[in-house]
Simulated assay, not measured.
Amino acid sequence: MKNKKDLLFEVLMIAIDAGRAILPYYGNEDYEYKEDLSPITQADKAANKVILEGLKKISNYPICSEESELEYEKRKNLDFFWLVDPLDGTKDFLAQNGQFSVNIALISHNSSTLGVVYAPILDEAYIAYQGFGAYKITQCRDKTLQDLHNSLIKIPQDFSRTRGIACDSVHHSVEKMQNFIKYYDLECKKLGSALKFCALATSEADFYLRVVGTKEWDSAAGQIILEESGGLVLSYEEKTPLSYNKENIKNKDFMAFGIRALQKDGAIFHIYRDFKNNLGFFSKKPN
């Protein structure tokens, strides 16, 4: 297997190239509906083509993409495969709010082991692999591969805030999330796509509760980035890390925590404690 750090940067370059393929369509409001009634644009298709071609050049791992899903019988016994969302946040793309991303993850034995989240409009990337840590790179498009290596900045953590911040979806906010924010008197930060995981990784937010259906390609890259920054992504019912390569590629409801939320002496640790013990808001009948 190729050196993981080299592989990570090659994947980053592919994500940046996919972002370049997306940008000419930004502002075009044309879209179609897929079978699940989610929208798909020419930008989704263009990015998917770039990513599939790029990943095939750097490895022989099979690829499962939102726009070209690999059936379970072909992936269930794989040691490694790529899990891709070529344009995460199509509704954000159509709304022209800039909060969409290219997500690429490497899955091994039901876990996400390497991830890249690239936001083309912001021209920012978040990258990680197991044991390497989580990093952010800005102004990506004009950088060579060596420049990207030299621009690596380990994601800093800010422990100065006392009030917690919860990420909420721009287009998929639900009453349970709003009640969670109100119950714990949290600030709310609205973000699209996998950028919510990245906000937790950078301590710009602390919590992300998701109870509206997501797929594995929505969360895999963001999960490893958050975990390598010191955070956690846990299923809502079982309190275990999200697992991948399931027969049904839908995610279970989950709760994501940034590193600040996990500090035992911190002002917001009680929310994680309540979650783990089904107390407070997380009890069947929260007070």
Rank of each mutant, 00 (worst) to 15 (best):
K5L: 08
L7R: 12
L12M: 05
A15Q: 10
A21L: 06
A21K: 10
G27V: 01
E29Q: 15
D30F: 08
E35A: 04
E35Q: 03
E35T: 02
L37M: 12
I40K: 10
K45H: 15
K49G: 12
K56V: 08
N60H: 06
I63P: 08
E66T: 01
K74S: 11
L78E: 00
L83G: 03
A95R: 08
A95V: 05
G98S: 01
S101E: 04
V102S: 04
L106Q: 12
S111G: 05
L114T: 00
I121P: 11
D123G: 04
E124R: 08
Y129D: 06
A134R: 01
Y135A: 05
K136M: 14
Q139D: 07
D142T: 02
K143S: 01
K143G: 00
D147F: 06
D147M: 08
N150S: 14
S151M: 03
Q157D: 14
Q157S: 14
F159P: 07
T162V: 03
T162G: 02
I165G: 04
A166R: 01
S169R: 13
H171L: 09
S173N: 14
E175L: 13
Q178I: 11
K189D: 04
C198E: 07
L200S: 04
S203K: 11
Y208P: 12
V212A: 11
E216N: 13
D218S: 03
I224W: 01
L226K: 00
S229L: 01
G231C: 01
G231Q: 01
E238Q: 13
K252S: 10
K252E: 07
F254W: 01
M255K: 00
L262W: 05
A267K: 11
F269E: 10
F269Y: 13
Y272L: 04
N277I: 09
G280T: 04
F281T: 11
K284M: 09
N287I: 10
N287H: 12
